[in-house]
């Protein structure tokens, strides 16, 4: 995504700065600042907010529209399943490394159901963090992810992986359901 552009009077453009300072970004950056100092004092808090505002002004990004709700229970299920997946897949990849055997891989296309860029990014990041799959190509127009999967022997295993990836997307959609369209227009 490119930053929102502001056209100067002479026709040249520059990134728009007037709406660059977004409260969620400032809050997040302030938290990072406090974590780096490892302490919470009023002076650090004020300094953190100042630094966060400076960073937002110097590196303006387009506003992020978070048009979804959060379901806590589904979120817990998502994170729990994710941790289990990461541990299991880490063991699997480690065993593949330690066995002296030729590995066979596959490049699998996964057509995502959701059409939102944010969901696609989240699915891609979570799939990347689970060992055994790397996103080699992402096609935004058709919402297709191409994943390189390690230790796949036959078509059946490819199909199983595809189903797992789609199940992950379903869990994500359950945890972050989209808001009704009426609210989306209002925000």
């Amino acid at each position: 995504m490119s930053p929102v552009l502001h056209t100067r009077r002479d026709g040249t453009t520059r990134p728009a700065r007037h709406r660059a300072v977004q409260p969620p970004a400032v809050a997040g950056l302030t938290l990072v600042w406090l974590a780096l100092w490892g302490d919470v004092t009023p002076l650090l808090l004020v300094g953190g907010v100042l630094v966060a505002v400076m960073v937002c002004l110097v590196f303006p990004l387009p506003p992020l529209h978070l048009s979804f709700r959060v379901r806590p229970l589904a979120l817990v299920a998502l994170v729990g399943r994710f941790i289990v997946d990461v541990v299991r897949a880490s063991v699997e990849v480690s065993s593949v490394v330690l066995r002296r055997r030729q590995v066979s891989n596959a490049v699998v296309a996964v057509d995502l159901e959701s059409s939102s860029d944010l969901m696609m990014t989240l699915v891609a990041s979570m799939l990347s963090l689970v060992p055994g799959s790397v996103v080699v190509e992402a096609r935004r127009s058709t919402h297709t992810l191409f994943l390189h999967v390690i230790d796949v022997r036959d078509e059946e295993a490819v199909e199983r992986f595809r189903q797992e990836a789609l199940a992950l997307e379903q869990r994500l959609l359950r945890a972050f359901p989209a808001r009704a369209t009426g609210q989306e227009e209002a925000s």
């Binding site: 990849v93 490394v97 590995v103 689970v130 055994g132 799959s133």
Partner: peptide, 23 residues
């Protein structure tokens, strides 16, 4: 580290190098 040495091609090495190491 062993995976980086043992794996046959770049993409398989990416799995070995980046993933168990996150955990």
């Amino acid at each position: 580290a062993i995976g980086v040495v043992r794996m046959p091609d770049l993409l398989s090495r990416m799995h070995a190098a980046t993933k168990p190491q996150v955990l």
